[in-house]
């Protein structure tokens, strides 16, 4: 067993366990900490897939900014106790869990069957990857982002401006954190 194989299994285990922690922890602050752990594991998985720049962005944006936002809002709420963390009712809960189980089984089965049928092409894909050999990933990424997809990039900028104005308007409205009296 080589080092990268061990690394994959370790990271997969960490991701799944901390992802389960997000859903199963009754206290929201522990959920937030589990989510931070999941984000860091996902960033490490990006590193094993040689997406170094996106791993850095993942750590800065998710584990930094978004998680701080979540934890700050949780501190603002001061949730001492949480009544009824999960949905009420055994029947609907069983239906929901069965739905999730069927979905995950379908997805995993489709992926495995699809890749077994297409398994003949795997050698070709591997050789193509080696031939393509994105040597300088960050450079290729920036060229694709700023030359080919520049319209989407600018549209995202406009979207972020709209979101920022909308959030400020929401917090100034009746019932928000900075409501006018």
């Amino acid at each position: 067993m080589t080092a990268d194989v061990f690394l994959f299994w370790f990271l997969a285990f960490m991701t799944i366990v901390s992802g389960l922690g997000v859903v199963l922890m009754a206290n929201p602050i522990y959920s937030a900490l589990s989510l931070a752990m999941t984000m860091i594991s996902v960033a490490a998985i990006f590193v094993t897939l040689q997406a170094y720049f996106l791993a850095g962005v993942q750590i800065i944006v998710y584990a930094g900014a978004v998680m701080v936002l979540f934890v700050m809002v949780l501190m603002l709420f001061d949730l001492k106790h949480e009544l009824q963390a999960f949905t009420r009712g055994r029947a609907t809960g069983a239906i929901k869990i069965a739905t999730v189980g069927i979905l995950s089984g379908l997805v995993v089965g489709a992926v495995t069957i699809g890749l077994t049928i297409g398994g003949k092409n795997q050698a070709e894909v591997a050789s193509a990857t080696k031939a393509a050999g994105i040597v300088d990933t960050t450079r290729g990424l920036s060229e694709a982002l700023f030359l080919k997809n520049v319209f989407g990039f600018e549209a995202l900028g406009v979207l972020l401006l709209v979101i920022a104005v909308g959030t400020v308007a929401l917090s100034r409205s009746k019932g928000g954190t900075h409501a006018r009296d």
Partner: peptide
């Protein structure tokens, strides 16, 4: 998403 009731979670 299906099972929790807390909006933050």
């Amino acid at each position: 998403v299906l099972l929790r009731r807390n909006l933050i979670v």
